[in-house]
Structure formats: C-alpha cells, structure tokens
C-alpha cells in the first residue's frame, strides 16, 4: 500500500448514522493514499457531511466516547488514528465497523 494508491473501503455505520446519512447497508468510500481510521473518517465526512461531528467531536476531532472502531475481529479503537488499517479493510474485503457502545441496559 503506497501513498498514491486508491482504495475502496467498506464502512459499516450504526443504525442512527445510516438513517442520518440516508443510506442502507455498508457505504463504500474512496480513499486516496494510506487507509487509516483518520483517512477513512475524513473521506466519509466529505461524502456524507451530515455525519460531521457525530463520530468525532467537531472541535477536538476526538472519537466520541461511546463509539468504537472494529475490523477483522479486532478492536482498533485505541490504535493511533494514523495507523494503517488491516489489509483486508484496505482491499475492501472487510468493513471498518463504527460501533455504538451497548449502554442503557
């Protein structure tokens, strides 16, 4: 994977964000360059600007506390945002999952 590559990444959003973005199922996002949590979210927000501020805080750009990032059976939530995502995600074989924490009983 090099900086010049373009990838189509699948992103699985929680129900309320799919409703907000008016999409069904996973969304396909084009990424130019390294596939990281940050680059995927940047591209996702550019494609669906109604999602700005809903996954990352508008000001701090920090992940909202009740959201998690999973992929390939791993919890990537606490990885650095510029760490490369698994190759299966970069190749579009596995989705990056944005998951709402189960809370409230």
């Amino acid at each position: 994977m090099t900086a010049g590559d373009t990838h189509t990444v699948q992103v699985a959003l929680p129900y309320h964000l799919r409703t907000l973005a008016r999409v069904e199922g996973d969304v396909a996002i084009e990424i130019a360059g390294p596939v990281t949590v940050r680059s995927v979210l940047d591209a996702l927000e550019a494609r669906y600007p109604m999602l700005m501020g809903t996954i990352r805080d508008h000001v701090t750009q920090q992940r909202r506390p009740f959201l998690r990032f999973f992929a390939c059976g791993e919890d990537l939530t606490h990885d650095p945002p510029d760490a490369p995502l698994p190759e299966a995600v970069a190749q579009g074989k596995e989705p990056l999952m944005v998951v709402g924490a189960i809370a409230g009983g």
Binding site: R22, V23, E45, A46, R47, Y48, P49, M50, M52, G53, H58, V59
Partner: peptide, 15 residues
C-alpha cells in the same frame, strides 16, 4: 447521497 463538496460543509458546529 450528494457528491463531496469543497470546502467541507460545517453544520451544527458549536465552538
């Protein structure tokens, strides 16, 4: 499902 716009839209931002 609109196309990306540039500069990005900033809506609902309270700073």
């Amino acid at each position: 499902d609109a196309k990306p716009v540039w500069p990005p839209v900033i809506s609902n931002k309270f700073v």
